[in-house]
């Protein structure tokens, strides 16, 4: 009797963890494959393209006035030809302008669309801004989510650009602009801010032209310094930080597991990938005109006056112009 009870107890305890699973096996509720977005395609202007599709019906109707906007409960769309938000005004409606949207200084709004352009005075706060023409932001404006301009995007000093700023044409950033992702045919900083001058670590490996000539690609196991004026016709990777001195030109990609520092006048014609940080000095350039590349960091990025990126700047922890 004791033996039977012991065996029964043993089996019961052993089987106990299996019991909850029996319910799921009997009536499966969570048995589908994990979802994959098979149609997803990475597009730096994804937000705005999606938004344009959503407002297309409203824009084509050309019926000015108040209209219901998608399925939003608390926000209507206000359609106009050239609406103008008064200075310091506040609206929760989505502003859709067939031609030009003007936002006076200090205005606060949600989403704004300008068929031909958007012009914002100082200290305008918006959730999203989208234009099929140009967008001009005055100083100290802030965009909570994203901003996109089909032709050009001009950003004043000390603005905040949310998670994405993009343009089909040129982007110009003033000084003190905060951003996460900026995309354009050419993204340039125009600021009068003082540029810091970072220094390499003492134990960094110094790469001279004669070392680099061994190429084709350079891989350094630690911090590395590429000396001033070097021409590197290849890609380079450093397992630590990569410090590229003034006037260096790299025709391939520059990859750093630590920080990537490109000092004044330096050029990287391929991608710039700094895992822990990215510094682009005065008059530096990433990419070449007509070809879009990426300057990426999982840390913070700093761009000095004249720094230009042909393509995309991605700064996961946030970046700013000096």
């Amino acid at each position: 009797m004791v033996a039977i009870l012991s065996v029964t107890a043993f089996v019961a305890v052993f089987a106990l963890p299996l019991v909850p699973g029996l319910f799921e096996l009997a009536r499966p509720r969570d048995n589908s494959g994990l979802p994959i977005a098979l149609n997803y395609s990475r597009d730096p202007r994804f937000f705005s393209q999606s938004f344009r599709v959503k407002i297309a019906v409203l824009c084509e109707s050309r019926a000015f006035g108040r209209a219901r906007f998608l399925d939003r409960r608390n926000e209507d769309a206000i359609l106009g030809k050239r609406p103008c938000l008064a200075p310091n005004s506040r609206t929760t409606d989505v502003q859709i302008a067939n031609e030009r949207l003007i936002c006076g200084a200090g205005a606060t709004m949600t989403d704004g669309y300008g068929g031909k352009s958007i012009s914002c005075g100082e200290e305008v706060a918006a959730r999203t801004l989208c234009s099929d023409g140009a967008v001009v932001l005055g100083d100290r404006c802030s965009v909570e989510r994203w901003i996109d301009a089909e032709s050009s995007l001009d950003v004043g000093n000390d603005c905040y650009l949310g998670m994405s700023a993009s343009s089909g044409g040129f982007v110009t950033l003033g000084g003190g602009v905060e951003f996460e992702r900026v995309y354009g045919e050419r993204v340039t900083v125009r600021s009068a801010g003082e540029a810091p001058s970072p220094k390499p670590t003492k134990d960094a490996i110094v790469l001279r032209e004669r070392d680099i000539a061994k190429g084709p690609d350079i891989i350094v196991r630690g911090d590395a310094v590429v000396l001033e004026g070097t021409l590197l016709d290849a890609s380079i990777k450093a397992h630590g930080s990569l410090f590229i001195e003034r006037g260096v030109r790299i025709t391939g990609n520059a990859i750093a597991r630590g920080e990537l520092v490109l000092l004044d006048g330096g050029v990287i014609e391929g991608h710039a990938f700094g895992e822990r940080g990215l510094f682009l000095g005065v008059n530096t350039r990433i990419g070449v005109p007509g070809q879009r590349k990426t300057a990426y960091t999982a840390g913070n990025a700093m761009l000095c006056n004249g720094a230009t990126v042909h393509g995309w700047i991605v700064s996961e922890q946030g970046g700013w112009s000096a």
Partner: peptide, 19 residues
Amino acid sequence: YTPGKDILRALTAAFSDPE
């Protein structure tokens, strides 16, 4: 296998790293 639309680009991006 059923590759998605962007997977070729995403996988190829790794080869930007010369190592």
